[in-house]
Computed example of a mutant assay.
Amino acid sequence: MSVDDAGAKPDWRNPNLGTRVRVALWLADEVGEGGRFVKQQLREAIPGVEQIDRRMRDLRPAGWSILTYRDRGGLAPGELLLEKIGKPVWEKEHRAAGLRVVTAATRRRVFERDNHRCVRCGILPGELYPDETEAAARLTIGHVEPHKYGSASGEENLVTECSRCNETAKHLASPRFSERQVWDEITELPRKDKQMLLAWLVAGKREQSRVERAMSHLWQLPGAQREEIMRRLGRSLSS
């Protein structure tokens, strides 16, 4: 059944529908207003889709209210509440409701401006997270002012984030560490590192050193060119 069939509500199981439409239909049909769910249920219902959490967040500017435990007391960590069903994005006239498209050219300029690394944690694409030896970073575009509050999608409101920082910033991922654990880790840092950390917090992003900028530029080269520079660097240091 097509999403455009007059008077017919499509089935969320239809793989020919867009992911945002399928997520909206699943929420409306399987959860319903006032219903609770967890993200794993959504992933199991619509498997094999990358960034399905993002497609769910894209419903919020269309009037869908999806709350986390941070927003509503009584919800368990990781539990979500479908407080309100917004515009029926499965209907043709509402399909683009709330969407703010970031063009490929804008995305490229933002990545280049931020040196192709996450401004939150500083990780490069393809690097492994220190606490997850099998999880490689993937870069995406995040909003300085949250999209759900009606923010613009101009370059001044966009930043480069890894997918993990982006999820945490949108409050759809449980914190990986407690506030106490993070503070204990910070108190053990040398004073100069604490000063650097404070400067990053004030700036709202991780400021790069010259060697980090060089690494981010190096990482953008093809693998063969990186290996050649690695050999040249090794020879220059051994001479």
Rank of each mutant, 00 (worst) to 15 (best):
A62H: 02
V101M: 10
R108Y: 07
C121E: 04
M56N: 04
M56V: 07
R36W: 02
L139S: 04
R120Q: 12
L82K: 03
G150M: 04
A45G: 12
R120A: 13
L42P: 00
A45W: 07
L128P: 00
R138D: 06
V49S: 00
G63W: 00
P130A: 12
T103V: 06
G126K: 03
I66W: 00
E44P: 00
I46D: 01
E155N: 13
L139D: 05
I46V: 08
L124A: 11
S65Y: 02
E30W: 05
K92Y: 01
S151T: 10
N115H: 15
E155Q: 15
A137N: 07
E50D: 14
E83M: 05
S151L: 05
L80A: 01
D53G: 10
R113Q: 13
T68A: 12
R72F: 05
T133D: 14
L80Q: 04
L139G: 02
T106Q: 13
L80M: 13
R113N: 12
R107Q: 12
G86A: 10
R72D: 07
E44W: 00
P146G: 09
R117Q: 14
L139A: 05
I52G: 03
C121R: 00
R70V: 10
V49N: 00
R72I: 01
L81Y: 06
E112C: 07
S151W: 06
T103M: 09
V38I: 13
I141T: 13
A135Q: 12
E132N: 10
A97N: 03
F111W: 13
H147N: 10
I85S: 14
A28L: 11
D29L: 08
D131A: 10
D71W: 02
G48S: 12
L128T: 12
A152E: 15
L67P: 00
L75R: 01
R107N: 07
K148R: 14
R120L: 06
G86Y: 01
V31P: 05
Q51D: 14
G34K: 10
I46S: 05
G122I: 01
E155C: 11
A104N: 11
F111R: 13
F37L: 04
Q40G: 11
C121G: 03
S153D: 15
H116V: 08
R109G: 09
G78S: 07
G98Y: 05
Y69H: 14
R60Q: 15
V89W: 01
S65P: 00
D71I: 06
V89G: 06
V101T: 14
L139W: 03
T133E: 14
L82G: 02
K39S: 11
L99Y: 13
E132Y: 07
G142I: 02
L139M: 14
G48Q: 03
P125S: 10
V38P: 00
L80D: 01
G34Y: 11
E132D: 15
N115V: 06
G126V: 06
E134F: 11
R109C: 09
L42Y: 00
T103S: 15
C118Q: 05
D29R: 07
R70C: 08
A97Q: 04
R36I: 03
E83P: 00
R54E: 12
A97L: 02
V31Y: 06
K87E: 15
R107I: 01
G122F: 03
I85G: 09
G150T: 08
S151N: 11
R95H: 12
G98W: 03
F37K: 06
E145D: 14
G48F: 02
A104H: 08
G142S: 15
A105Y: 04
I52W: 00
E134W: 09
